[in-house]
């Protein structure tokens, strides 16, 4: 079994990375969409394009690692909560998690589509606006999933530690019923 401290460190650091990467993607997208266009409107067209191009180049270097870390940390979180999600499919937690994951992946795809090619697509600001909306709904779905999970844990016994220690999940999460 993975040492207890290592398990705690893994899950806390993964959650931290998930939030930090979200701040960089969402905050960056919002400023790119709302603030920079207004701030550069007095500049000449060539200067505007230079500022946008350079900022897009820097943003690309932030988006790539953020997207990879978001996927890894999100997968770790799903892995940890899987039994809770599947224990009671009628409570909506699984659906909220699926919506959060689906919209998150869609938003990352749009962000990569906007920043990776050499030339931005037509109407990049419009795409970013759509992406921001998707990201906000995705975060809302995560809040709903967490609320249902906490409400469930108030009603029933713990469900995330039912795996035997010889299984992969059990090795990481600890044996059933083990107290921390």
């Amino acid at each position: 079994m993975i040492d207890e401290w290592l398990r705690h460190f893994l899950f806390v650091s993964m959650r931290w990375l998930h939030i930090v990467c979200t701040t960089l993607v969402v905050g960056g997208t919002l400023f790119f969409e709302f603030v920079v266009p207004i701030a550069v409107e007095d500049l000449k067209t060539e200067q505007q394009l230079t500022v946008f191009g350079k900022a897009r180049w820097v943003f690309k270097r932030v988006i790539w690692p953020s997207a990879i870390l978001l996927l890894v940390s999100g997968a770790t979180s799903i892995f940890r909560q899987w039994n809770a999600y599947t224990a009671n499919p009628q409570d909506g937690m699984l659906w909220a998690a699926v919506i959060h994951t689906g919209l998150g992946i869609l938003a990352l795809g749009i962000a990569l589509m906007l920043t990776v090619p050499r030339r931005p697509p037509d109407r990049p600001i419009g795409w970013m606006r759509v992406n921001l909306g998707i990201l906000l709904i995705s975060i809302l779905a995560a809040s709903v999933a967490r609320y249902i999970r906490l409400a469930d844990s108030n009603r029933s016994a713990p469900v995330t530690r039912q795996d035997a220690p010889q299984t992969i999940r059990g090795a990481i999460l600890g044996p059933p019923g083990r107290s921390d």
Partner: peptide, 12 residues
């Protein structure tokens, strides 16, 4: 959302 905007904005 507020934390994301504050941190993302500061980073930007």
């Amino acid at each position: 959302i507020a934390a994301i905007l504050a941190i993302g904005g500061t980073f930007f």
